[in-house]
Design a protein around this nucleic acid. Structure first.
Lengths: 242, 242
DNA sequence: CGCCGACTTGAATTCCTTCAAGTACGGTGG
DNA sequence: CCACCGTACTTGAAGGAATTCAAGTCGGCG
């Protein structure tokens, strides 16, 4: 692993789960020119309407993508964790149709678009892995449409938490049970299409059922099986990304 | 255009809007082996959990993709029109995470997966167009998450109708204003995460405002500008697919 | 210490669902 | 041709889930 950018290892590890890359593919990724940045929580990395000239990889911390209605209410459409490329689609669709935001302090790697395009042209395996990754993204969006459209508050929140835990575990960040959620109740509300008030009350009932526990103002999953049952969580839609 | 499969023209036309294909790309598409089928309304073309061995192109008519919760309530995640490939993702993700259904009588072209894979390997421009197409799909899913999560019934339905009209027009199927919607109120409900009862009432208010009109049991857009205003519809997210 | 943002709780309201009944229409068979 | 049937649509009334508004509490940080 390139000692200059040790954390690109997470990206490579993730892509290898999708398509075996071979040493030349791995090497090509490690040789990408990369500009490092530490972004504070809340920092906008891509703004809706932008035409990004660099591609944005999350190396450490958490991020989300969101869109807004004209009246200002916000909808988060996905969460991201270390190893995720945050704007792969801007390689092919220049103008951003949504914003990207760091939700914790985050280490970001910025890679010039031309370098990414060269990588895709030279390394068919890497291109294949990127395509699969973007198709898995799309599958997750479909599940979110179902989640927000057809589940009630309790299983909606449970499902969002299950997905987060499963992807986190798949990315090698620790077990599904017992970690601290890196987001506010308002963020949970924005991801599930609810108000923060109702999220608060619903979290309480999930705690009362024993599925969740709280540690100060932090939420943790205390009973993974119960939470999965409440969420009707079946991770087939993650397509082995988890 | 290949006289054997005149309607593949719609697919080619759509891909050309994304990436200029050149004559060899067009020819390669026209030479695809294809099995034709006329599917009646309601016919399931792909079932969640399947591992499809043929790729499914919509040549004529309309289709949708949907998922269900365990209790049986259904969420439509996208609508499709002639020229759309209905399961591009199964080239890269073998197992279907959702179902595909004809919503009107539909002409379907079935293409063996190996032939599609050969096409992608031999024709980089076509592969590029397919990738862009699947990224636009993903952008539309994101907009649906926002629509279902954050808009009220009235603008939610209006937005769904605007998107349908805009995509229909972009596909060369006629103007946004004044066509008959090829779907029941129940389908509108399944796409917007509502009940058919409330869809019915909300359609009435949209009619009262003059945005829609009805022709027997058919709905038509009578005032495109008003409908767009109600929906806060901005088609940037369609990325020139419209 | 005092402020600010996040969380918590209650009460009133609203939007949407549920349940139930009835209407209109197209297709089928007699 | 008409009677019948099923499906989609329509409408009302009651109930419930989630929002809104408002007033706190708690904890971290300058």
């Amino acid at each position: 692993m390139n000692p200059e950018h040790p954390r690109l290892g997470r990206l490579i590890q993730k892509l290898e789960r999708l398509v075996p890359l071979g040493s030349s593919g791995r090497q090509a990724i490690e040789n990408l020119p990369i500009r490092l940045e530490v972004a504070p929580a809340g920092r906008l990395l891509v703004r809706e309407g932008d035409v990004p000239e660099e591609c944005c990889v999350l190396l450490q911390g958490y991020a989300c993508r969101h869109k807004s209605t004209r009246d200002g209410s916000r909808q988060i459409v996905s969460f991201h964790m270390p190893g995720d490329i945050l704007d792969l689609q801007h390689l092919k669709l220049p103008r951003a149709d949504h914003s990207v935001e760091a939700i914790t302090t985050a280490e970001i790697g910025w890679i010039p678009m031309p370098a990414m395009n060269r990588l895709l042209n030279d390394q068919p395996d890497v291109a294949d892995a990127f395509w699969r990754d973007s198709l898995i993204d799309a599958s997750i969006f479909r599940e979110w449409v179902l989640n927000v459209g057809r589940r009630d508050a309790r299983s909606r929140i449970a499902h969002m938490l299950c997905e987060f835990a499963a992807r986190r575990e798949a990315a090698g960040l620790g077990p599904a049970e017992g970690f601290d959620l890196p987001m506010s109740q308002q963020k949970i509300a924005d991801a599930t299409g609810m108000t923060s008030v109702h999220v608060n009350r619903t979290l309480r009932t999930l705690c009362d059922e024993g599925a969740l526990a709280r540690d100060g103002r932090k939420i943790r999953i205390s009973d993974w099986k119960t939470l999965q049952r409440i969420a009707e969580f079946d991770q087939a839609y993650l397509h082995c990304a988890a």
